[in-house]
C-alpha cells in the first residue's frame, strides 16, 4: 500500500506531520530531546516567553485530578533576551519548525516580543497566549473580550511576517467569537484550547491547594470539552485550527482531526509517555494506511458531514464577529494582507 502523506501546512509552516508538542509541556525542546528525536515531530511550541524573566508561582504547582492535571506554574521563563541568546540558536539546529509562545500584559508588550523575535533565525511562528491578564483591562484576560483578542492579533500581525497563531482560552462565553476575532485580526491559525480553569481544595488543611486558587486543568479529563471547542471554532473560521486538549493516543488525535483540526498539539500526554508525540505520529500513519486514506488532510473535518442540524446551524448563525475597531483592520488590510489556509 502506498505510504500515507502526513504533511500539513499551518500558515507558512510546512510540517512533516500534524503532531505538535504543546507549549509549557515541552520546555525548549532540549529537555525531551534527551529521550527522543524531536526532529520527527511536526513542530514544537516553546514554553511561554515574556519580555522580562518570570520566577513563576510558589509550589505546589501541580495537582493530579481524575484523568487530569491542574497546574499553576505561573509563566516561569528566562525572559526574551535569554531565550534569544541561549535557546533560539539550539532550537534553530533541531531540524523541526519552532513556534514561540509569547505572553504580554499589554498590546505594547506583545508587539515588542513579536518584533524582537522577527529577525531571530530558527523561529518559524508565534503563538500568542491571550489567556494572560491585560493590565489595561483591570487584569482581565485578553481572551475574555473578542475586541481585545482582535486588537492583539492585528497589532502582532503588523509587526511579524512569521506564522501567527492565537491560542484560544476556553474560559470565555463564546470561543467561536474569539476565534473569529483572531481571524479578523490577521491570525494564520488558532490553537484550541488552552487549559480550563479549575480549583483544588486541600480538605486536610481546609484551604485551596494553589496560592493563586485557580489553576489550569489539562489532560484526558478535558478532551470532550476541547473537541467541542474545536468543532465550534472550525465552524466559525476559515483559518486552520490546531486541536489541543487531552490528546494521549493516536485515536485521540484522529478524533480532533475529524472534528475539524488541521493539526494537533500534545501537552499533558508527554508527561504520561515522553514518546507520546512520536507514538501519535506513527498511529496516525497506521490508521491512514490501514484504511487506504491518502493523506492526513483528508481526515480534517470529515466527521462534520454527519452533524445534526442543531450543531451546524447553531455555529453558523450565532457567531459572527464584527470588530468595533474598523480602522485598525483597514490599516492592516492596506498593509500586509492575510494568508488564509483555505480548505474548509
Amino acid at each position: 500500500m502506498a505510504s500515507a502523506d502526513l504533511a500539513v501546512t499551518i500558515g507558512a509552516i510546512k510540517m512533516k506531520n500534524p503532531v505538535i508538542a504543546a507549549s509549557g509541556t515541552f520546555g525548549f525542546g532540549r529537555e525531551f530531546g534527551r529521550v527522543l528525536d524531536i526532529s520527527a515531530l511536526g513542530a514544537i511550541v516553546t514554553k511561554g516567553i515574556t519580555l522580562e524573566p518570570r520566577a513563576g508561582n510558589p509550589p505546589p504547582r501541580l495537582w493530579e485530578t481524575a484523568c487530569g492535571l491542574l497546574n499553576s506554574v505561573g509563566l516561569q521563563n528566562p525572559g526574551l533576551a535569554a531565550f534569544i541568546r541561549d535557546e533560539a540558536p539550539r532550537l534553530a539546529a533541531c531540524g523541526v519548525p519552532v513556534i514561540v509562545n509569547i505572553s504580554g500584559d499589554s498590546l505594547a508588550e506583545f508587539c515588542e516580543l513579536a518584533s524582537c523575535l522577527e529577525g531571530v533565525p530558527g523561529v518559524d511562528g508565534l503563538e500568542v497566549n491571550v489567556s494572560c491578564p491585560n493590565i489595561h483591562a483591570g487584569g482581565r484576560p485578553f481572551a475574555s473580550d473578542p475586541e481585545a483578542v482582535y486588537r492583539v492579533a492585528a497589532a502582532v500581525r503588523r509587526v511579524t511576517g512569521k506564522t501567527l497563531i492565537v491560542k484560544l482560552s476556553p474560559n470565555v462565553a463564546g470561543i467561536a467569537r474569539t476565534a473569529q476575532a483572531a481571524e479578523m485580526g490577521g491570525a494564520d491559525a488558532v490553537s484550541c484550547v488552552n487549559t480550563y480553569l479549575g480549583i483544588a481544595i486541600d480538605a486536610e488543611r481546609r484551604r485551596p491547594v494553589f496560592s493563586r486558587v485557580f489553576a489550569g486543568l489539562s489532560g484526558p479529563a478535558i478532551k470532550p470539552l476541547a473537541l467541542r471547542a474545536v468543532w465550534e471554532v472550525a465552524s466559525a473560521v476559515r483559518i486552520p485550527v490546531v486541536g489541543i486538549g487531552g490528546i494521549c493516543s493516536p485515536q485521540d488525535a484522529i478524533e480532533f482531526l475529524l472534528a475539524g483540526a488541521r493539526a494537533v498539539a500534545i501537552g499533558t500526554g508527554n508527561f504520561i509517555s515522553p514518546m507520546a508525540c512520536l507514538e501519535v505520529v506513527e498511529g496516525i500513519r497506521s490508521y491512514l494506511e490501514e484504511r487506504g486514506i491518502r493523506a492526513a488532510t483528508d481526515l480534517v473535518g470529515r466527521a462534520r458531514g454527519h452533524a445534526g442540524h442543531t450543531a451546524g446551524s447553531h455555529s453558523d448563525e450565532a457567531y459572527v464577529y464584527e470588530p468595533k475597531e474598523r480602522k485598525a483592520e483597514d490599516d492592516f488590510a492596506a498593509g500586509k494582507g492575510r494568508s488564509h489556509g483555505g480548505e474548509q
Partner: peptide
C-alpha cells in the same frame, strides 16, 4: 521530593524555592 510531571526538566512543575543568594546570582528563583 516534590509533585512531578515530566521528570525531564521541561514542565517546571516540581519547583523548589532557591535560596536568596542563589537567586541573586542571576538564576531564576525556583
Amino acid at each position: 521530593e516534590e509533585r512531578m510531571a515530566c521528570g525531564l526538566g521541561a514542565c517546571l512543575g516540581c519547583a523548589v524555592k532557591a535560596r536568596e543568594a542563589t537567586a541573586r546570582s542571576g538564576r531564576t528563583a525556583y
